[in-house]
Simulated scan of single mutants.
Amino acid sequence: MLLEPSRAVTPPDSPRIRSQHGIKAVRSKSRTWNGVTVYALDIEVLPGRAWIDLTSEQGSLSIILETVGGRVETRQKLDMPNPAHHQTLRPISLIPKGMTLWGHAEDSRRVREARLDFDFAPLESVLGEELDRRKFETPLLTFRDDRIWRIGELLAAQCKTPDSLSQLYGDSLTTALFIDLLRMGKRPPNERKQGGLAPWQLRKAKDYLQVHLSEGVRLRELAQLTGLSQSQFGRAFKVSTGMTPFRWQTQARIARARELLLDGRLSLAEVSLATGFSEQSHFTRVFQRVVGTSPGAWRRAQRW
Rank of each mutant, 00 (worst) to 15 (best):
V286S: 01
R134M: 13
L141V: 00
A269P: 08
K24M: 06
R303L: 05
D119Q: 12
Y208E: 09
W149Q: 07
F143W: 10
E215R: 14
K29E: 13
T32V: 12
P122Y: 10
A176N: 08
V38P: 02
T37L: 00
R49F: 15
S164M: 09
E4F: 11
A121C: 05
G276L: 09
F277P: 01
D53S: 04
R49T: 14
F246D: 13
L123H: 03
I64T: 12
F118N: 01
R49K: 11
G292L: 08
S6V: 03
E191W: 13
Q76F: 04
Q249L: 07
F237E: 01
K238P: 02
S278M: 07
R71V: 11
I63Q: 06
R134C: 10
P47W: 03
T244F: 12
L65A: 10
D146P: 11
R203D: 10
V217Y: 02
Q224M: 12
L116G: 01
M1N: 05
L261T: 00
A8D: 03
M243A: 13
E259H: 05
S60D: 07
A301D: 03
A40S: 14
R150V: 08
R192D: 12
S60K: 02
L177N: 03
A223I: 06
R203V: 02
G264H: 03
A198I: 04
R220G: 06
T74L: 09
E270I: 03
D180N: 15
I179V: 15
P189N: 03
T174V: 10
D13P: 04
Q158S: 13
I43R: 03
L65Y: 04
R218Q: 13
L165G: 11
L94R: 01
Q87H: 12
E215I: 09
T67N: 09
